[in-house]
């Protein structure tokens, strides 16, 4: 399926990725090419086939309800871009 500029802008927004204006054309062409490759599977009749999400089709193990973690805030925040008083900082959230 061929995408247009607006499609690409919408997808980029959905994925929160900034694209420079001058790159949109090239991105659109490349994404369209990939979708064309993907679209080859549209020809296949898969009616009645159960989708496969996990190769092994096993089931989820359950963990006992135990607290195993301790405070490592200092170590974790040492690699954070911006923190203050133990909080991660982001531009003001408006609700």
């Amino acid at each position: 399926m061929a995408l247009n500029r607006t499609d690409v802008e919408n997808i980029a927004h959905l994925a929160r990725i900034a694209i420079n204006d001058e790159d949109i054309a090239a991105t659109t062409a490349k994404l369209s090419g990939i979708l064309e490759l993907i679209d080859k599977m549209q020809a296949v009749d898969t009616q009645g086939i159960v989708p496969l999400a996990h190769p092994l089709e096993t089931t989820q193990r359950l963990r006992d309800d135990l607290v195993t973690e301790s405070n490592q805030r200092e170590a974790f925040q040492a690699i954070a871009p911006a923190t203050q008083e133990g909080l991660y900082l982001v531009p003001q959230v408006i609700e």
Binding site: A82, Q84, E85, G86, L87, Y88, L89, V90, P91, Q92, V93
Partner: peptide, 8 residues
């Protein structure tokens, strides 16, 4: 926080 929000 200087014009920022804090995340907990």
């Amino acid at each position: 926080f200087h014009g920022m929000s804090g995340i907990d």
